[in-house]
């Protein structure tokens, strides 16, 4: 289990360059965090005519993107997830989702990956608030291969979309043959004792937990959801029928994110015991991911412990 050689943000920027090389209507928009999201200098120097830095003005970034989109451009707007979602929630609501403009929003450094910027910058509710918005598609890739394939999908499909972007290197789950399939869960392991539902940054940690639990004769079915909205109800219900117990794992608050989605679907279709792992109803703090995993018991050990308890 080795980290991929490239940072996720590097792949984001390089893929944007590929997309721009094929379609000059694609634009990279930034709000003075282009170095942090990886597009400066990769995009800004390769395609300066397709690179717009609006300054520290996220609301204007979304509005400018909406105007560009109305005139046939495909803007990708990036900022930290806290600013790309909660700060501009009304701008996204009106000028993107309600107006039905073709704007792509990238929320970088989601959840605990914000690390040293601490509680002011750690956003644990972007999946919850973005999936509560009509006409928005909500995505969270788990590795560089999925990220790249997903960006191609986003560039070539009309509609407002929000995607979480973990910035550093992550352990790959897939390989270069992977093709992102919109609205579909990916079954990473087959199991009969417990179903784990996860997304984005937590998928590789959940996979490690699942692999280690095999030695304890606990067989976990691992469902990775790169697409939180539209949500693949069918895969969840089918797995829950088999295992009769579901654990959700997310780099988000346990309120309203993927845990919330799973509870909504199962309670209406197949009432099932669910354990939600993630950040409880708390703000973040300056801390490493490991510290927060241990504090709120939802990292590798937390997942394993929950599986053992739920199997009983």
């Amino acid at each position: 289990m080795k980290l991929h050689e490239k940072e996720m943000r590097t792949v984001y920027a390089e893929t944007l360059n590929e997309l721009i090389s094929q379609n000059k209507n694609i634009f990279c928009l930034e709000a003075d965090l282009a170095k942090a999201t990886g597009t400066n200098p990769i995009v800004s120097e390769t395609y300066p005519n397709n690179f717009i830095n609006v300054g520290v003005a996220e609301a204007n970034m979304i509005g400018v993107a909406a105007g560009l989109a109305v005139d046939g451009k495909v803007p990708f707007c990036a900022s930290f997830s806290c600013f790309a979602s909660r700060r501009v929630y009304d701008q996204i609501t009106l000028s993107v989702a309600y107006a039905n403009t073709n704007v792509k929003i990238i929320g970088a450094a989601p959840g605990v990956t914000q690390g040293p910027n601490g509680g002011t910058h750690m956003c644990f509710q972007d999946l919850a608030i973005m999936r509560a918005m009509p006409n928005m598609q909500v995505l969270s890739p788990c590795d560089v291969y999925e990220l790249k394939s997903m960006l191609y999908y986003m560039a070539n499909t009309y509609g407002g979309m929000y995607m979480q972007l973990v910035r550093p290197k992550v352990i790959p789950i897939f390989d270069e043959n992977y093709q992102y399939e919109h609205g579909k869960a990916v079954k990473i392991s087959e199991g009969s004792d417990v179903t784990i539902v996860t997304t984005g940054f937590m998928t590789h940690i959940a996979k490690q937990a699942v692999d280690e639990l095999k030695e304890e004769n606990i067989n976990v079915e691992l469902l990775h959801y790169p697409c939180i909205k539209p949500f693949d109800d069918e895969s969840l219900i089918s797995s829950a029928k088999k295992t009769k117990t579901v654990i959700t794992v997310e780099n988000q608050s346990v309120i309203g994110g993927i845990g919330g989605a799973v509870c909504e679907i199962l309670s209406e279709n197949l009432p099932t015991r669910v354990k939600r792992l993630g950040i409880p109803d708390k703000f973040g703090e300056v801390a490493s991911a490991k510290y927060l995993f241990d504090k709120y018991i939802f990292g590798l050990e937390g997942i394993k412990q929950a599986c053992r308890e739920m199997k009983k």
Binding site: A59, A65, A66, G67, P75
Partner: peptide
């Protein structure tokens, strides 16, 4: 407060 930003996007395009 949102229209002028969209107008900027259209003027830029």
């Amino acid at each position: 407060g949102q229209g002028l930003s969209a107008a900027c996007g259209m003027a830029f395009a």
